[in-house]
Design a binder for these strands. Structure first.
Ligand SMILES: [Zn+2]
Ligand SMILES: [Zn+2]
Ligand SMILES: [Zn+2]
Ligand SMILES: [Zn+2]
Lengths: 172, 172
DNA sequence: TCTATGTATGTAATATCATAACACGTCAAT
DNA sequence: ATTGACGTGTTATGATATTACATACATAGA
């Protein structure tokens, strides 16, 4: 099965980077789960019940969840209720590119582009706490160039923006 | 007293963004302290003994220090030894633009451009743990543009790069 | 000068985030 | 059957950060 058969022509998937925009989120989440199965299969990794459930929890909305928030949910559902249970599942998802860590929030969010090459920047609304993924390749290119001037070789970058989403700009 | 009388023609200060390069660090640190006094004076803020000492500690080298590392130093020198003592001084320095928080490291580093308008990106060497400030205005422009496509208004940004400094590239 | 006010510091207690170490169960290869 | 890799569960601990309250100190009126 191809990893992303309909993403490009599906209205719900065509612009998933716009998490702020109204969209069919049930579809959004369901599609991400399907793609996650494909990604792990392709990588020879195991999508176990705990891992799948953590991804589902992250996919419930476009906010970032702390490890302990996830853990509370897992514990309530009969999985382990000690921190390593959550941290290990989250670490797995991040390694597989199915979730991202938001450094400013010490929290995790489901990837909206699973299985696609992308350089994410994160747009974090300081009022409603929604998190959207934007494309950071241009910013990353600038950063790499500036780093090169100092002789520095960039391996991984963190690009996060705090501000107001469209809805909250109106409210404020 | 002008805030930065000699920074632009001083060899030690001309390219302080290149923290990785060999430079007269005693001068580098001393100058930063002088400029810090000017900045706080201009802002009507008080550079107290604890705050000055924290800045001095951060200025000892171009690495990032955790709040508890700073706190241990303060406690050993007769200042308070409870977390808020360090966090408050660090928060003050960050507000005044005299230090920056490195999100990836949960740590703080002295600003190398105190009193100057700048959009910092941080270059963090994963081997020697040195931290340099690079100019992020180009990256920030890209980020703002990409955010605008989603209707998002960026207020603050975090741009950090993890990788290898010039010296550690040779070693690796 | 005296006192009121805002601000800075000290301290105790607690909250939040994260990892190390070990035990146990499953499954596949030998 | 034994081994080894992996995933999960659990205990314990470590690392980071904040709340709340008490005390000291500066400065600005009265
Ligand atoms: Zn969605
Ligand atoms: Zn919002
Ligand atoms: Zn220096
Ligand atoms: Zn280095």
């Amino acid at each position: 099965m191809p990893a992303m058969p309909h993403a490009l022509d599906c209205p719900g998937c065509a612009a998933p980077e716009l998490a702020f925009a109204a969209h069919d989120h049930a579809h959004c989440a369901h599609d991400a789960l399907e793609r996650a199965e494909a990604v792990t299969a392709a990588n020879g990794a195991r999508m176990t019940p705990v891992r799948r459930r953590v991804l589902e929890i992250l996919l419930e909305n476009h906010k970032a969840l702390g490890a302990y928030d996830v853990l509370a949910r897992l514990g309530a559902e009969g999985f382990g209720n000690q921190p390593p249970v959550a941290y290990r599942a989250l670490e797995f998802l991040v390694e597989q590119g199915l979730a991202h860590r938001i450094q400013r929030l010490n929290a995790f969010t489901a990837c909206t582009h699973p299985g696609e090459e992308h350089a994410p920047a994160f747009l974090i609304c300081r009022l409603c706490h929604m998190v959207a993924e934007a494309e950071a390749s241009a910013a990353r290119t600038s950063l790499d160039a500036e780093a090169a001037r100092a002789g520095f070789r960039v391996e991984r970058s963190t690009i996060e923006a705090l501000g107001l989403c469209p809805a909250c700009q109106g409210a404020a």
